[in-house]
Nucleic acid binder design. Structure first.
Lengths: 211, 211, 211, 211
DNA sequence: CATGAATGAGTGTTCATTCAT
DNA sequence: GATGAATGAACACTCATTCAT
């Protein structure tokens, strides 16, 4: 009766509260800086309850990030990229616009998970490997393929594809980090901002005169 | 022979080893993830010796970062920027080139300190405020002024200066992070890489046709 | 069988053992001279268990003395004194006799707590203030009122009441300290001893010829 | 030239400052509650300097109290008592008066040493034994002999001499402790106070009617 | 004579984790 | 299913003490 492997229905009420509390605590204080006691307090459960569901603090971190990586990040990316890849985008600009919109949406949907991921990545080799294998590598591969297609079509300057990807990624990350984490409360004219960023990328990466 | 009471010669041998060990440990494991005992072991001194010189673990962090921020980062930036600001750079491109070279040099000189700073900034409000006031704000001000000058000269597109600064900063950081932290061992053709990044920025931020 | 949620039954077994061990350790070695590890060893629990119930060593001291001061000392004194005050004692002598009996009984019931109190009072301003406000002041007030009544009745010499109180207190304390702490194992003829102490006080404080 | 073994002339300047600092620190915080670092700071010397003169913290305590016990307490008492004993005091009252004056004078001359002694006695068996053998026992012996003489002369009630001594000691200590330690700043009419305390003792210990 | 530098052994306290109920 | 009780190991930090200079 308790075995209904529906997606997030197997989660107890307590389990959900624990995950929610852990996300907040890890995002605010970092993994090492967060005590399980604090998570328990935030979740309103006993400390022991945490260990009922997550065999260790580390497993709690992975259990918190895992779904966000595999179910949300991974598939989400695939889902969002696949059509991107298969669909023949009318132009490089349209592709950039779609990609940025999708990335912004993802970070806005899970800002604390993204924050935790970014904060713990430097300290956690396993996490790093996981992300590398399950997110970074496939994403990069698809990105490279796309860029090369646009290059063949003469829409993008003929630089090494990884460099082009890095230019795009840097610009997008700079915008997103500022928009979501650094100055989320500022008055942003998102439409104008996005327009210009896209323009910046399109111009910067246009074939133009031979570099 | 033991009487050379000069500036940074007042530091005990042990003191230097402690700072060095702390830098490594904090860079690798983060502040919260590093035990003072571990620092002591790395430095080859007793744990108590650490507290002879640094009243607390936190003071050790600040004592490690402080000089790097105030003496190296802050002034260094001022020093490196002031000529940039006053000197009439022949072109926007020359300015970008000089700035990138200087930023890369700084990060290469203190990669672990930069790493620690980036890692602890999200968790340490005081550190954040310090950086904001002593590094970020003045640097941003100078950057904005510069950009506006280039805009008046018609070398840079007439977008909000903060946006332009962010485009530059994002691109530079993307390059530096990759070059120094993510793939330092890869075979880089730095000259070509830098040339293209500068080109990317110049083109992307050129006045061009009205956006 | 494990559900007897009565007053002092809420205390865990370990909690009781900790308090008992702390009382012994503090009485023998003083507060500053006692390590929490020693208390843990005496109580047969882990050191961490102490801090489950008492957030700090100091709170353990207060938690140990508190009940002895508020529930036992304070009220006990009030209880024992109120009837004394209201009841018309047949004589000053009868009053002294009752008071001494009551004081001796109290110290005998809690010799180690009294000892700890006396030992830590000089070092602990907060404790001192607490005792002053909750024990010393009210007790002194009642004592003074009583003495004044006996003076009006012509049973006690017409000296400043505080002086009279001090003579009584000094004599009682001298007896009790010797009897309970210094030479508890000596062969005492308590009855004779008490008789003479009371006689000493009655004679010494009798109106007599004008002083 | 530095070897003039005159009494307290052998003491270095630093040595004196250390002793003075230790007396203050021990009196205020107790022996266990005082760090040698604190003593060094108060004395204005390096911590190591303390250990040049006193092989251990404990020896410092003894070195501080020793002179006060042997040179001041012990001999002083003997000196002050011998005449008392040999001289035929005109009366019991005159004896009490002389004794109290001498005791008050001593405590006023060395209040912090007396305080330290009282505070550490419960924790320090060796100290206790020393005091017992060198101060308490001889003093008690003399006191008993004196009391017995006064009893034979019919000036003092025929109770066990130890009891009589305790009555005197308790009363004196009660007065001194209040006068010197508890309320030293209060406005005291010392003459009247002393007169009454003496009267209290003389009356209380007078042979009177058979007890 | 005096000290700055250094430390091993502890200090009170917190940690993630276990387990009987 | 959830917890209160308990803990060994680790934590940052302090202690009295040593020693070369």
């Amino acid at each position: 009766m308790s075995r209904r492997p529906r997606a997030n229905d197997t989660l107890t009420e307590a389990q959900k509260k624990i995950v929610e509390a852990a996300v907040n605590a890890f995002a605010e204080q970092g993994f090492a800086g967060t005590a399980t006691k604090d998570i328990a307090r935030r979740a309103g459960v006993a400390e022991a309850t945490i260990f009922k569901y997550f065999p260790s603090k580390r497993e709690l971190l992975l259990g918190v990030l895992g779904p966000a990586i595999e179910q949300l990040v991974g598939p989400a990316m695939t889902r969002s990229m696949d059509p991107v890849l298969s669909a023949t985008y009318p132009s490089f600009e349209a592709f950039l616009r779609a990609l940025l919109a999708e990335r912004v949406a993802f970070v806005r949907a899970h800002p604390r998970l993204v924050r935790i991921l970014a904060q713990e990545l430097p300290f956690d080799a396993e996490l790093r490997m996981g992300i590398l294998r399950r997110v970074y590598a496939p994403l990069l591969a698809k990105g490279l393929a796309l860029i090369e297609r646009f290059q063949q079509e003469g829409q993008v300057v003929d630089w090494p594809a990884p460099l082009v990807v890095r230019c795009i990624a840097s610009t997008f990350m700079g915008y997103i980090v500022h928009r979501v984490f650094i100055a989320p409360d500022a008055a942003w004219d998102d439409q104008a901002e996005v327009d210009r960023i896209i323009t910046f990328l399109v111009r910067g990466l246009s074939p133009g005169q031979p570099a």
